[in-house]
Nucleic acid binder design. Structure first.
Lengths: 108, 108
DNA sequence: TTAGTATGTAATATTTTTCTTATATATAAA
DNA sequence: TTTATATATAAGAAAAATATTACATACTAA
Protein backbone atom coordinates (compact mmCIF):
# COMPACT_ATOMS: atom_id res chain seq x y z
CA UNK A 1 0.00 0.00 0.00
CA UNK A 2 2.77 2.35 0.98
CA UNK A 3 5.52 0.78 -1.10
CA UNK A 4 4.83 2.95 -4.10
CA UNK A 5 5.52 6.18 -2.29
CA UNK A 6 9.23 5.40 -2.11
CA UNK A 7 9.45 5.03 -5.89
CA UNK A 8 7.19 7.99 -6.49
CA UNK A 9 9.21 10.13 -4.13
CA UNK A 10 12.38 9.14 -5.95
CA UNK A 11 10.89 10.12 -9.32
CA UNK A 12 9.76 13.45 -7.89
CA UNK A 13 13.21 14.12 -6.44
CA UNK A 14 14.90 13.23 -9.72
CA UNK A 15 12.47 15.40 -11.67
CA UNK A 16 13.23 18.27 -9.35
CA UNK A 17 16.97 17.80 -9.85
CA UNK A 18 16.71 17.23 -13.60
CA UNK A 19 16.58 20.94 -14.35
CA UNK A 20 19.47 23.36 -14.89
CA UNK A 21 17.90 26.24 -12.98
CA UNK A 22 17.14 24.13 -9.95
CA UNK A 23 20.60 22.57 -9.98
CA UNK A 24 22.14 26.03 -10.15
CA UNK A 25 19.99 27.10 -7.23
CA UNK A 26 21.20 24.25 -5.08
CA UNK A 27 24.80 24.93 -6.09
CA UNK A 28 24.43 28.61 -5.28
CA UNK A 29 22.66 28.04 -1.96
CA UNK A 30 25.27 25.46 -1.01
CA UNK A 31 27.95 28.07 -1.51
CA UNK A 32 26.06 30.64 0.52
CA UNK A 33 22.47 30.81 1.78
CA UNK A 34 20.39 33.53 0.18
CA UNK A 35 16.85 34.71 -0.44
CA UNK A 36 14.70 34.22 -3.55
CA UNK A 37 15.18 37.77 -4.74
CA UNK A 38 18.99 37.52 -4.66
CA UNK A 39 18.82 34.12 -6.33
CA UNK A 40 16.70 35.53 -9.14
CA UNK A 41 19.22 38.30 -9.73
CA UNK A 42 22.19 35.95 -9.61
CA UNK A 43 20.68 33.46 -12.05
CA UNK A 44 19.33 36.32 -14.19
CA UNK A 45 15.79 35.04 -14.23
CA UNK A 46 12.53 36.83 -13.31
CA UNK A 47 11.56 36.66 -9.65
CA UNK A 48 8.32 34.67 -10.14
CA UNK A 49 10.26 31.99 -12.00
CA UNK A 50 12.85 31.79 -9.24
CA UNK A 51 10.07 31.63 -6.65
CA UNK A 52 8.41 28.84 -8.59
CA UNK A 53 11.56 26.75 -8.85
CA UNK A 54 12.67 27.30 -5.27
CA UNK A 55 9.21 26.41 -4.06
CA UNK A 56 9.36 23.10 -5.89
CA UNK A 57 12.64 22.29 -4.16
CA UNK A 58 11.28 23.43 -0.81
CA UNK A 59 8.16 21.28 -1.09
CA UNK A 60 10.31 18.20 -1.61
CA UNK A 61 12.53 19.11 1.29
CA UNK A 62 15.61 19.55 -0.91
CA UNK A 63 15.95 23.12 0.25
CA UNK A 64 14.97 24.69 3.56
CA UNK A 65 14.66 28.08 5.19
CA UNK A 66 17.67 28.65 7.41
CA UNK A 67 16.83 32.02 8.88
CA UNK A 68 14.58 35.04 8.48
CA UNK A 69 16.08 38.44 8.99
CA UNK A 70 13.77 41.15 10.12
CA UNK A 71 15.42 44.14 8.49
CA UNK A 72 12.77 46.62 9.48
CA UNK A 73 10.06 46.66 12.16
CA UNK A 74 7.31 44.07 12.19
CA UNK A 75 7.44 43.37 8.49
CA UNK A 76 8.01 40.83 5.66
CA UNK A 77 11.38 39.52 6.75
CA UNK A 78 14.01 38.39 4.28
CA UNK A 79 14.03 34.61 4.16
CA UNK A 80 17.30 32.80 3.63
CA UNK A 81 17.44 29.35 2.09
CA UNK A 82 20.02 26.59 2.03
CA UNK A 83 20.05 23.04 0.63
CA UNK A 84 18.99 20.30 3.01
CA UNK A 85 21.33 17.37 3.56
CA UNK A 86 20.39 14.75 1.00
CA UNK A 87 22.12 11.96 -0.84
CA UNK A 88 20.77 10.11 -3.83
CA UNK A 89 22.94 7.40 -5.35
CA UNK A 90 21.95 6.22 -8.79
CA UNK A 91 23.36 2.96 -10.09
CA UNK A 92 21.70 -0.04 -11.78
CA UNK A 93 21.92 -1.73 -8.36
CA UNK A 94 20.22 1.02 -6.35
CA UNK A 95 17.50 1.32 -9.00
CA UNK A 96 17.07 -2.44 -9.10
CA UNK A 97 16.84 -2.53 -5.33
CA UNK A 98 14.26 0.24 -5.25
CA UNK A 99 11.91 -1.78 -7.41
CA UNK A 100 12.74 -5.21 -6.08
CA UNK A 101 12.14 -4.17 -2.46
CA UNK A 102 8.80 -2.57 -3.11
CA UNK A 103 7.68 -5.61 -5.08
CA UNK A 104 8.36 -7.75 -2.04
CA UNK A 105 6.64 -5.16 0.11
CA UNK A 106 3.40 -5.91 -1.67
CA UNK A 107 2.98 -9.27 0.02
CA UNK A 108 5.01 -9.23 3.16
CA UNK B 1 33.87 26.04 -24.33
CA UNK B 2 33.44 22.46 -23.29
CA UNK B 3 32.65 23.07 -19.64
CA UNK B 4 28.93 23.21 -20.20
CA UNK B 5 28.67 19.72 -21.62
CA UNK B 6 29.33 18.16 -18.22
CA UNK B 7 26.39 19.98 -16.68
CA UNK B 8 24.22 19.41 -19.71
CA UNK B 9 25.05 15.74 -19.72
CA UNK B 10 24.13 15.53 -16.04
CA UNK B 11 20.76 17.18 -16.66
CA UNK B 12 20.08 14.81 -19.56
CA UNK B 13 20.99 11.81 -17.43
CA UNK B 14 18.77 12.97 -14.60
CA UNK B 15 15.90 13.67 -16.98
CA UNK B 16 16.28 10.18 -18.38
CA UNK B 17 16.18 8.70 -14.89
CA UNK B 18 13.34 10.94 -13.67
CA UNK B 19 10.68 8.72 -15.22
CA UNK B 20 8.96 5.66 -13.74
CA UNK B 21 8.95 3.65 -16.97
CA UNK B 22 12.63 4.19 -17.59
CA UNK B 23 13.51 3.38 -13.97
CA UNK B 24 11.48 0.17 -14.21
CA UNK B 25 13.30 -0.69 -17.42
CA UNK B 26 16.69 -0.33 -15.80
CA UNK B 27 15.55 -2.33 -12.77
CA UNK B 28 14.19 -5.08 -14.99
CA UNK B 29 17.25 -5.20 -17.26
CA UNK B 30 19.50 -5.25 -14.22
CA UNK B 31 17.70 -8.33 -12.99
CA UNK B 32 17.96 -10.02 -16.38
CA UNK B 33 18.85 -8.72 -19.85
CA UNK B 34 15.96 -8.78 -22.30
CA UNK B 35 14.71 -7.40 -25.59
CA UNK B 36 12.35 -4.48 -26.18
CA UNK B 37 9.41 -6.69 -26.97
CA UNK B 38 9.70 -8.65 -23.73
CA UNK B 39 10.18 -5.40 -21.82
CA UNK B 40 7.01 -3.97 -23.35
CA UNK B 41 5.03 -7.02 -22.27
CA UNK B 42 6.50 -7.05 -18.78
CA UNK B 43 5.78 -3.37 -18.17
CA UNK B 44 2.40 -3.66 -19.90
CA UNK B 45 3.03 -0.81 -22.30
CA UNK B 46 2.73 -0.70 -26.10
CA UNK B 47 5.86 -1.70 -27.99
CA UNK B 48 6.49 1.70 -29.65
CA UNK B 49 6.47 3.36 -26.24
CA UNK B 50 8.92 0.84 -24.87
CA UNK B 51 11.09 1.31 -27.94
CA UNK B 52 11.01 5.07 -27.46
CA UNK B 53 11.99 4.93 -23.79
CA UNK B 54 14.70 2.31 -24.23
CA UNK B 55 16.12 4.30 -27.11
CA UNK B 56 16.43 7.35 -24.91
CA UNK B 57 18.38 5.35 -22.35
CA UNK B 58 20.52 3.78 -25.06
CA UNK B 59 21.41 7.14 -26.59
CA UNK B 60 22.72 8.35 -23.24
CA UNK B 61 24.68 5.18 -22.70
CA UNK B 62 22.67 4.18 -19.64
CA UNK B 63 21.68 0.94 -21.34
CA UNK B 64 23.56 -1.12 -23.91
CA UNK B 65 23.02 -4.06 -26.21
CA UNK B 66 24.63 -7.12 -24.65
CA UNK B 67 24.00 -9.68 -27.34
CA UNK B 68 21.93 -10.40 -30.43
CA UNK B 69 20.55 -13.86 -30.91
CA UNK B 70 19.96 -15.02 -34.43
CA UNK B 71 16.98 -17.27 -33.91
CA UNK B 72 16.37 -17.96 -37.57
CA UNK B 73 18.58 -17.67 -40.66
CA UNK B 74 19.92 -14.32 -41.80
CA UNK B 75 17.21 -12.26 -40.19
CA UNK B 76 16.25 -9.55 -37.64
CA UNK B 77 17.94 -11.00 -34.61
CA UNK B 78 16.57 -10.56 -31.12
CA UNK B 79 18.56 -7.85 -29.36
CA UNK B 80 19.17 -8.12 -25.64
CA UNK B 81 19.80 -5.08 -23.49
CA UNK B 82 21.32 -4.51 -20.07
CA UNK B 83 22.10 -1.41 -18.00
CA UNK B 84 25.59 0.03 -18.39
CA UNK B 85 27.69 0.54 -15.30
CA UNK B 86 26.99 4.03 -14.09
CA UNK B 87 27.03 5.90 -10.81
CA UNK B 88 25.51 9.29 -10.15
CA UNK B 89 25.78 10.68 -6.64
CA UNK B 90 23.54 13.62 -5.85
CA UNK B 91 24.27 15.73 -2.79
CA UNK B 92 24.48 19.51 -2.28
CA UNK B 93 28.27 19.03 -2.44
CA UNK B 94 28.40 17.11 -5.74
CA UNK B 95 25.98 19.59 -7.29
CA UNK B 96 27.95 22.51 -5.94
CA UNK B 97 31.15 21.00 -7.29
CA UNK B 98 29.64 20.42 -10.71
CA UNK B 99 28.89 24.12 -11.09
CA UNK B 100 31.93 25.48 -9.27
CA UNK B 101 34.36 23.45 -11.36
CA UNK B 102 32.85 24.37 -14.68
CA UNK B 103 32.85 28.04 -13.69
CA UNK B 104 36.58 27.85 -13.11
CA UNK B 105 36.93 25.97 -16.36
CA UNK B 106 35.78 29.04 -18.23
CA UNK B 107 39.02 30.91 -17.68
CA UNK B 108 41.64 28.34 -16.95
C1' DT C 1 -4.35 -16.75 -44.14
C1' DT C 2 -4.63 -15.24 -39.59
C1' DA C 3 -2.34 -14.78 -35.06
C1' DG C 4 1.80 -14.36 -32.58
C1' DT C 5 6.58 -13.04 -32.28
C1' DA C 6 9.97 -9.50 -33.41
C1' DT C 7 12.04 -5.30 -35.34
C1' DG C 8 11.74 -0.14 -36.40
C1' DT C 9 9.79 4.52 -37.62
C1' DA C 10 6.57 8.56 -38.44
C1' DA C 11 2.80 11.44 -37.34
C1' DT C 12 -0.20 13.00 -34.33
C1' DA C 13 -2.41 13.76 -29.85
C1' DT C 14 -2.20 14.40 -25.08
C1' DT C 15 -0.17 15.76 -20.92
C1' DT C 16 3.17 17.95 -18.21
C1' DT C 17 6.58 21.26 -17.46
C1' DT C 18 8.30 25.66 -17.92
C1' DC C 19 8.02 30.53 -18.53
C1' DT C 20 5.88 35.02 -18.82
C1' DT C 21 2.78 38.51 -17.56
C1' DA C 22 -0.04 40.54 -14.37
C1' DT C 23 -1.63 41.30 -9.80
C1' DA C 24 -1.18 42.51 -4.81
C1' DT C 25 1.28 43.93 -0.66
C1' DA C 26 4.98 46.67 1.95
C1' DT C 27 9.06 49.64 3.13
C1' DA C 28 13.05 52.88 2.13
C1' DA C 29 15.37 56.15 -0.52
C1' DA C 30 15.74 59.53 -4.06
C1' DT D 1 5.84 59.72 -6.66
C1' DT D 2 8.95 56.84 -8.82
C1' DT D 3 12.61 53.38 -8.21
C1' DA D 4 14.55 49.68 -5.76
C1' DT D 5 14.07 46.20 -2.46
C1' DA D 6 11.27 42.19 -0.93
C1' DT D 7 7.40 38.91 -0.52
C1' DA D 8 3.62 35.82 -2.81
C1' DT D 9 0.19 34.09 -6.12
C1' DA D 10 -2.76 33.38 -10.36
C1' DA D 11 -3.58 32.98 -15.20
C1' DG D 12 -2.26 32.11 -19.48
C1' DA D 13 1.22 31.04 -23.14
C1' DA D 14 4.92 28.38 -24.90
C1' DA D 15 7.79 24.50 -25.00
C1' DA D 16 8.99 19.87 -24.01
C1' DA D 17 7.91 15.25 -22.73
C1' DT D 18 4.97 11.44 -23.12
C1' DA D 19 1.75 8.38 -25.31
C1' DT D 20 -1.08 6.60 -29.05
C1' DT D 21 -2.08 5.14 -33.59
C1' DA D 22 -0.67 3.72 -37.83
C1' DC D 23 2.59 1.98 -40.95
C1' DA D 24 6.19 -1.25 -42.81
C1' DT D 25 8.94 -5.46 -42.64
C1' DA D 26 9.66 -10.60 -41.66
C1' DC D 27 9.35 -15.29 -39.90
C1' DT D 28 6.73 -19.29 -37.49
C1' DA D 29 2.86 -21.86 -36.19
C1' DA D 30 -1.92 -22.93 -36.29
Amino acid sequence: MNDNSEKQKMVKMLKALANPIRLKMIASLHEKPKNVYALAKELEIPYPLAHLHLNGLKKLGLVKEVRAEQKVKGLPSVKYYAPSKFEIVLTPETIGKLYAESERGKNG
